[in-house]
Design a protein around this nucleic acid. Structure first.
Length: 458
RNA sequence: GGCGGGUUAGCAAAGAGGUUAUGCAGCGGAUUGCAAAUCCGUUUAGAACGGUUCGAUUCCGUUACCCGCCUCCA
């Protein structure tokens, strides 16, 4: 079957047709670099990476743009909270610019650890301030803005189409608003430009026609997407939480400025839950990729775990499920490694089946199930391996380059192991068992092979 | 309060109106001096109630519980 993707805009599966034959313009909302990213954030980035890989397997060239939000993202509600960068700066004693650099670097490192393909363009909000100002001017020219004492706002009441993506019930929102409107005219109005407060000396601020200040959060994505991908491109992705506010406002801005809903398809990755609640930065404790490594997991095991659930369902994270993923991954790796050299051609029938699964809105769980079917099939090893390596172009688990770990065995352990191997070969079972006990005490497990033994750390 | 989604075996998680999801764990067997690893086989399902149907875990309705968004958020 041809590629079908679920589009939040229509709330339905749509056959994917690129606007330009053979090419895809893809914008994915990137991180806000005021803190580390947690593995829940990466679930969305992994989903987007899977999407890219499937687009490529369908013969499409992907032009991928991702933003780095390094200014303007407010800590709390109603457009009157503190800038996250400035807050992070106060917390750590570093400058806002240093904070941005530090966490951007951490983010890029994590992408590598997780095998996530780098975007074609990774752009920072602070590098594109003039573009954002120009975008706001365009919206202003069209008559959708008003100015309050603290900033320039978008008047959503003037936009008939406002809120379609989120299927927002505007009246219900007005009535149930949990945040004080302040000077805003409508609950759904949002800031385009925020003025620096005279009493706060901001580290990040710029001159603009309306006054010195900094851009609102939503404008950066609209402005940079416009700059790098044009007024209307193929796919825009983000987390499920962006449906009702961030993406709704991005669309609102673009419709006001250019009469475009910005992207043909809108796709959203669903949350990772821990203890049946979403993982969040603001709620305190969160899991970083580095913590997984510290606990002895391979980050790719987390990537594998994410493949076992469909991107449009919330996934429950637990150490138990990560254990299961790590074990399954290790077995698969070893199994594939033991198949020897891959053949020149994958099995066409299995690859066709595989593409059917992926083209059905990225059904990675079923694609993974098929992987085990192939692995157990009667195909010759060379063809089997070629097939599984082909599958891995979508999974990104790195089967082709994987090698069993070389373990450094201390000399004293090696000596005992050699002695036990000799005793075993001499059929001195009592001595062999005694020496095995000694190895256990040293923290090693000895496995007897046909012609040699292997040692693994407990 | 408004809007949306979910409830599948010990855990995680798919598809499908009737035919094994899958992985991990468990159990049985082969193998092994004993193990480990591996291989083979296999037990546990679909919130509750009602409806449609020859047949529903799958479609419809009601109830219960859970989660998300509406506020910074992947």
């Amino acid at each position: 079957m041809s590629l079908h993707l679920y589009d939040t805009w229509t709330r339905s599966l749509r056959e994917f047709t690129p606007l330009q034959p053979g090419e895809v313009g893809l914008y994915t909302c990137g991180p806000t670099v005021y803190d580390y990213q947690h593995i829940g954030n990466y679930r969305t980035f992994l989903f987007e990476d899977g999407l890219k890989r499937v687009l490529r397997l369908n013969g499409l060239k992907v032009n991928h743009v991702m933003n780095i939000t390094d200014v303007g993202h407010l800590v709390s509600d109603g457009d009157d909270g503190e800038d996250k960068m400035e807050k992070g700066s106060r917390r750590t004693g570093k400058t806002a610019w240093d904070i941005a650099a530090l966490y951007t670097e951490s983010f890029v490192g994590d992408l590598k650890l997780l095998g996530i393909d780098f975007p074609t363009t990774l752009c920072k909000a602070t590098d594109n301030i003039p573009e954002q100002i120009a975008f706001i001017e365009e919206i202003e020219k069209k008559g959708y803005t008003y100015i309050t004492s603290d900033g320039v706002y978008f008047d959503t009441a003037k936009q008939q189409s406002y809120g379609y993506l989120g299927r927002l019930d505007i009246k219900g929102l007005q009535a149930g608003a949990r945040v004080d409107l302040g000077e805003k005219r409508n609950a759904t109005d949002y800031a385009l430009w925020k003025f620096s407060k005279p009493e706060d000396k901001r580290q990040m601020e710029w001159d603009a026609p309306w006054g010195r200040g900094f851009p609102g959060w939503h404008i950066e994505c609209s402005a940079m997407a416009h700059k790098y991908l044009g007024e209307y491109f193929d796919i825009h992705c983000g987390g499920e939480d962006h449906i009702t506010v961030h993406h709704t406002n991005e669309i609102s801005q673009s419709e006001a400025a250019y009469g475009s809903r910005l992207s043909n398809y809108w796709m959203h990755g669903y949350f990772l839950l821990t203890n049946d609640a979403k993982m969040s930065k603001s709620a305190g404790e969160f899991l970083r990729v580095q913590l997984l490594i510290d606990k002895g997991y391979d980050p790719i095991a987390y990537r594998y775990l994410c493949l076992t659930a469909h991107y449009r369902t919330q996934m429950t994270f637990s150490w138990e499920s990560l254990d299961a993923a790590q074990i399954a991954l290790d077995r698969l790796r070893l199994n594939i490694h033991s198949m020897g050299a891959p053949g020149s051609q994958p099995n066409a029938e299995y690859v066709a089946k595989f593409m059917d699964k992926l083209n059905d809105d990225l059904n990675f769980p079923q694609a993974l199930a098929l992987t085990f079917e192939v692995s157990k099939s009667d195909l010759p090893n060379a063809e089997k391996k070629a097939t599984l390596l082909k599958f891995d172009e979508a999974f990104g688990l790195g089967f082709a380059s994987w090698q069993p770990k070389e373990v450094d065995v201390p000399e004293n352990v090696r000596t005992v192991a050699d002695a036990r191997w000799a005793a075993r070969n001499a059929k001195d079972w009592a001595e062999a068992d005694r020496l095995r006990g000694e190895l256990t005490a040293l923290g090693w497990t000895m496995k007897d092979g046909k012609d040699a033994y292997t040692l693994t750390k407990l």
